[in-house]
Design a protein around this nucleic acid. Structure first.
Lengths: 232, 232
DNA sequence: ACCTGAACACCGTTCAAGT
DNA sequence: ACCTGAACACCGTTCAAGT
């Protein structure tokens, strides 16, 4: 909790500034840490002991605030050895860091996923580093961006999936009509538990490993022409 | 556009019902088809020539309405040959259908992705069919649900990504500071254009093919112990 | 420059009142 | 049973007014 109980502040410019971009962002992350809490500017202002309109002095609107949060998260995730390790090794660490970071702020995952990635400097630097590693390792030029986007899509989708209740695919009521699904879900959960992971983590690791392995094979093998699907 | 201009309807029960679940859902899909249009109950009521409160007579709230839409979409996507084709073949068709269906209703992708998948009968039937095919084809029992979830996460993430502007990773302003990224993006776009696809479709196809190939390999190979990552 | 306070145009949801 | 209409508790954003 931030210092929200200042009794009452009179109108007019305060002698010393109450807010700052950093203070607002810190409070925003605090707000995003609680799961059910609706992430609104009004709630953010309340936690800062301030009126909602005061926030517009530092961020043009809600979208810009969220973009600022994403920029800070991206910078925080930072490098993961793309200069020294092969891309398919560094990308695993990078992807795990993203998942953990998103998971730490469940209240904002949906907003991050929904808002289109603007060209923030932090993101550009991040992508550039990965693209450079892929090229250095001989990945086909025209496959570099698709590979990055595919991994990012998987991470975003996984983060959203993690918001769902634990027993999402384990509806006890439907045990009778979905025997294969129910059995498979129990087997997956038991396996994860035996390895000391949550089911969600084990699922993420399995999917990530498979995706990166598939992308690596598609990049190193001779360019085959996959069956083309219907376009939109 | 639905019949929204009925001049004025007096209070009280109309002689014949104006609404129905089907009519509301149809109007909801129409509303979700336009990209920028905010998907609100108020806008939906307007398009139906009705007051917002009337909708609560058919759906308990907005979440239930969206769940109803997802149920109808899932049923519409239907079977994709899981009984007759190997899972890794049928799943490609299934995934493409999902992407096209989501893409046809851009206004609701975010809502579908955000709202946790409740145990709707339609979804359970869908998952059960896929789980049965995986088991039949000898996929390891404890990997079945993780594989399905991984593909679903990729589809959701890709659908959200498709909402982003075209030139998302091609910031002309950053050409200087991100040469690898800019070059890779141009190469990907040229390659997609030469094959008659949009860049988004080519990216989706590439990622989907790689993911399914990776999942297939992970399921048929001897169970290796992948390096375990940190848990949340 | 930096905040309050009032105002505006919205939301989703509830519920009495009408037929 | 099925709709209107009013009401409630919210939103995000704008802007004049205060220091």
């Amino acid at each position: 909790m931030s210092t929200a109980s200042e009794a009452h502040r009179p109108a007019g410019r305060p002698r010393t500034a109450v807010l700052s971009r950093e203070r607002i962002l810190a409070a925003a992350f605090e707000l995003a840490d609680v799961r059910g809490g609706d992430f609104t500017l009004a709630a953010l202002a309340r936690s800062l002991g301030v009126r909602p309109s005061a926030l517009h002095h530092y961020f043009a609107g809600k979208d810009e605030l969220i973009a600022g949060m994403r920029g800070q998260l991206t910078a925080r995730i930072g490098d993961h050895g793309f200069e020294t390790s092969p891309w398919h090794v560094a990308i695993l660490s990078w992807a795990r860091a993203h998942r953990l970071t998103f998971g730490a702020h469940p209240g904002i995952i949906a907003a991050l996923a929904t808002l289109p990635v603007a060209d923030e400097p932090e993101s550009i630097v991040d992508y550039e580093r990965i693209a450079a590693a892929l090229r250095r390792d001989g990945y086909p030029e025209h496959r570099i961006v698709p590979a990055i986007v595919a991994i990012e899509s998987f991470i975003i989708g996984s983060a959203l999936d993690s918001l769902a209740p634990e027993d999402n695919l384990r509806p006890v009521a439907n045990r009778g009509i979905a025997p294969h699904l129910t059995g498979a879900e129990e087997a997956a959960r038991d396996h994860a538990l035996a390895r000391g992971h949550s089911a969600a983590t084990e699922t993420f690791e399995f999917g990530l490993t498979a995706l990166v392995a598939g992308l690596r094979a598609a990049g190193t093998s001779a360019e085959t022409d996959p069956t083309s699907g219907a376009d939109a």
